[in-house]
Design a protein around this nucleic acid. Structure first.
Length: 432
RNA sequence: UCCGCGAUAGCUCAAUGGUAGAGCAUUCGGCUGUUAACCGAAGGGUUGCAAGUUCGAGUCUUGCUCGCGGAGCCA
């Protein structure tokens, strides 16, 4: 097979005659010269078609090229500061592969509703392309981070028999003769089993929430990465979380400069995401709200505006720990120094992006755990295997979950989660 | 579930209760360096649906449908 050449590789081919394939991003013509902007998924390239340099037939055929028509172009690569990307192709031949008729997304402004209806095409746009390239880099950074630190990737089931934490509304369906089953809302309980087997594991996959949340911060299907570590306490958990976030952000800053520029992201705010992050207790956070004249009663969970007020006090992610145990999940260990609070931590992203990490040290005492399950009115029979983890060599352990799309949104500086995933699923939309 | 906003050409939007318009896209013509190119021309409409008020409704009223974002819940 002849080696394929992509626009991103053109620096290695200056002066050579190459053949490229792709789609027409835009076209300008001036009588005897035509400028075809080729898009091949790896970049953009201006192809110059002078009337004398190609056959008359080829020159005229360029008129048929409409936006997003696919074609093949052959020509000599040259450096050209006037062109986007710094290179240009002097075309000697153009072959049309498929003519596109009336591409819906024109190079003008469009409304969000129209764009999301055409998500399958919107993905070709520069901004969406940049967001999803950054998403890809974030995923790689996540995997590199854990792989380099001795974690084992541990895939939990998507189909579960019980409502894991007993709080969220889940997608329910019939599972053969076994009754109702649910789509997972978290792989965490299974990750705990993994941590007892491998020491340090992480799960990374889709999770589902059937709540009728109708905001720019919610999807019904989203991706979550959940590390779980044996012999970690809450402080160890927070140490890992801040190292993790720093690694992700700094990796993107180093490797995705062009994409961040396309998104017009103010990177000075991302450059500040360096350890250590501020760590404040829930009590301290409540004080901050009161100092800002916000009414808030101890024992409640923070709303979106509360989170923004708290995170605005800092220039990097803030870790809020030791929440009232009543508003947290049954498996979270209570603080031995204060039974009213759980050894939990939420990480709030800067710039109003809200909670991106939720974690805790887990309850490792069998009797306490059974008591919590009863207090939450959860069916203990579903949790016997989970209780076995405490019966057979229980150890202190901790973990957290990071919402991928919220992290992508924050780093990209976009205002809606739906742009952070190729095909978003929301309560009133499951197409395309 | 509650609160608020919206629906006009393929798209983005205009239009004091009085002839439904512009830009982009499409088609045709012009231009040898364009950068959302530009210049000229053409085609393109059951104004979300239903009823009401009025001499006259895109505009006012009521109901419905669909969508948007906020609350709650959460990542």
């Amino acid at each position: 097979m002849k080696p394929k050449i992509y626009i991103s590789d053109l620096g290695k081919h200056v002066g050579e005659e190459v053949t490229l394939k792709g789609w027409l991003f835009n076209k300008r013509s001036s009588g005897k010269v035509k400028f075809l902007i080729l898009r091949d998924g790896s970049g953009y390239l201006q192809c110059v078609v002078f009337k004398g340099n190609v056959s008359e037939e080829v020159f005229n055929s360029c008129e048929e090229l409409t936006q997003e028509s696919s074609f093949e172009v052959t020509g000599k690569v040259k450096e050209e500061p006037r062109a986007v990307g710094g290179f240009e192709l002097d075309a000697v031949d153009v072959k049309i592969i498929s003519v596109c008729s009336e591409y819906p997304i024109t190079p003008k402004e469009h409304g969000i509703e129209f764009l999301i209806d055409n998500r399958h095409l919107w993905l070709r746009s520069k901004k969406q392309h940049a967001i999803l390239k950054i998403r890809h880099r974030i995923i790689k950074a996540i995997r590199d981070f854990f792989d380099e630190r001795g974690f084992t990737l541990f895939d939990p089931p998507i189909i579960t028999p019980n409502a894991c934490e007993g709080t969220s509304t889940l997608f329910e369906f019939d599972y053969f003769d076994l009754g109702k089953a649910y789509l997972t809302q978290s792989g965490q309980l299974y990750a705990e089993a993994g941590a007892m087997a491998f020491g340090k594991v992480y799960t990374f996959g889709p999770t589902f929430r059937a709540e009728k949340s109708k905001t720019r911060r919610h999807l019904t299907e989203f991706w979550m990465v959940e590390p779980e570590m044996a012999f970690y306490d809450l402080d160890d958990d927070m140490d890992l979380a801040e190292e993790f976030l720093e690694y992700i952000v700094q990796t993107v800053l180093t490797n995705m400069k062009d994409e961040l520029a396309t998104l017009e992201r103010d990177t000075s705010k991302l450059e500040k995401v360096l350890r250590p992050f501020p760590r404040i207790s829930y009590d301290d956070a409540v004080k901050i709200l009161h100092e800002n004249n916000i009414e808030f009663a101890w024992g409640n969970d923070f709303g979106a505006t509360d989170e923004t007020t708290i995170s605005n006090q800092f220039d990097r992610p803030v870790m809020v720990h030791r929440y009232p145990s009543e508003i947290k999940a049954f498996y979270m260990k209570r603080d031995p120094l204060n039974e009213k609070v759980a050894l939990a931590v939420d990480v709030l992203a800067p710039e109003g992006y809200g909670e991106i990490i939720g974690g805790s040290q887990r309850e490792d005492n069998l009797d306490f755990l059974i008591q919590r399950i009863q207090e939450h009115n959860l069916p203990q029979s579903f949790f016997e295997w989970y209780l076995d983890l405490r019966r057979f060599g229980s150890v202190p352990h901790a973990g957290f979950g990071l919402g991928l799309e919220r992290t992508v949104s924050w780093i990209c500086g976009i205002d809606h989660l739906r742009e952070a995933i190729p095909f978003p699923r929301m309560i009133y939309r499951n197409t395309p």
